[in-house]
Amino acid sequence: MIPKVAVLSGFGINCESETMAVFEMAGADASKIHVNRLVNGELNLNDYHIMAIPGGFSFGDHLGSGRLMGNRLRFGLREQVRNFVKSGKPVIGICNGFQVLVKMGLLPGDEDVSLTQTASLALNDSGHYENRWVTLEFDSQSNCIWTKGMTRIRVPVRHGEGKFVTADKKLLDEWSKLGQLVVKYIDPTTEYPSSRDEVLPYPISPNQSWRNIAGVCDPSGLVFGLMPHPEANHSTWLGATWTREDIEHGEGEGMKIFRNAVNYVKKNIVN
């Protein structure tokens, strides 16, 4: 059976077509699902194996990025979302989707899926939106099913509010210990692995995120979100410097993330 992916849409989400495309390239069957079709009961999340919240500007990012969409899900779809996560199905939020997951409390999250917000994404220190390419390094010890076997990738960031912060710094240590701080901005000239906690200079860290955090997962490793856009590097010709590189054209560096999840579902859920 082919894994079915619910790619949410509506209200200013705008990366749904490329997010659907990468899941299709990874061997899944992706559907564009307007959030209201879930709220009004026309469709049910239960019928899908993966949920993806793509990037965009839901509700124009007014009142804080991801805030209003997070509330629509937290208040309108609370039990559907909790059941989905508790049943062991993977969830990904990219950029605005990550902001939604953090604001609704699904990330960094907790064992009970209590939907309590514990972190946030603040305005970049630069004070504005930026589109530039970064290098990411993954924590090889993490149990995150989305990032398994990954070391480094190059992807674009395209956001104004991507600075990962929390109210209680002790939480960062806890999340770190559990492998939840799964992906960080890294200086591409260093050897792998070399991620560290001191904030790297701009623009290596484009937003001055605490501990260079680019993305996190929940304790189960099934819910994952990140500010950069792996779906935007699905093919080699979308790279930032591919015209300078001697490469064989094909799949881009971001695809592994989506393959990981689709393979996980094939192995553990749909058989």
């Binding site: 705008n14 990366c15 077509s17 490329e18 495309a21 990037g55 504005h128 939106y129 930026e130 589109n131 530039r132 390419w133 674009p156 395209r158 856009h229 779906e231 935007a232 590097n233 699905h234 010709w237 979308l238 930032a240 410097t241 015209t243 300078r244």
Partner: peptide, 22 residues
Amino acid sequence: VRSYDHEVIAQTVIKPFCGINQ
């Protein structure tokens, strides 16, 4: 120009900036 999104839709092959330091 960097504060315009020039890559949404994942289609932009030749971007506004190029070169070793983009």
